[in-house]
Design a protein around this nucleic acid. Structure first.
Length: 115
DNA sequence: TGAGTGACTGTAA
DNA sequence: CTTACAGCCACTC
């Protein structure tokens, strides 16, 4: 399984109304510092994954420009119930994707390549 | 092969 | 709050 595929898989796992950081996804995919590659991966699968739920660790919508418009991501998030500050960022304290017991399940799915 | 670049992150001043 | 630095990984020229 490619790194990009993992990224796509993880992103699809992000619950509606929640957001995840690039670093978080990168770590789940086995790339401790592959945050940038996560963004690149999303750019290629923008049509396949809810990339609007991915923001940087500070909660800023860094990927807004990759969408149809700089406000696209913001609108999509708000449509899911995520409040975005006027300065273009969300409250990570409240919206951060906290993987509970599902983390193990997700990791298993990511490592199924071991079959 | 080498240099530049980027949807990043964390630490420090 | 802002700016500066260093680290890491993949892609492009």
């Amino acid at each position: 399984m490619d790194f990009y595929e993992k990224v796509a898989l993880v992103c699809r796992r992000i619950p509606k109304g929640r957001v995840a950081s690039y670093g978080q996804i990168a770590r789940l995919c086995g790339k401790l510092y592959g945050a940038r590659q996560v963004g690149f991966a999303l750019a290629n699968r923008l049509e396949d994954v809810p990339a609007h739920r991915v923001v940087n660790s500070q909660g800023y919508l860094s990927g807004a420009h990759a969408f149809l418009g700089p406000d696209m991501q913001r609108k999509m998030l708000e449509a899911e119930g995520v409040l975005v500050s006027p300065n273009g960022r969300v409250d990570m304290k409240f919206y951060a994707w906290s993987l509970g017991a599902e983390k193990e399940e997700l990791l298993s799915a990511l490592f199924e390549e071991n079959t």
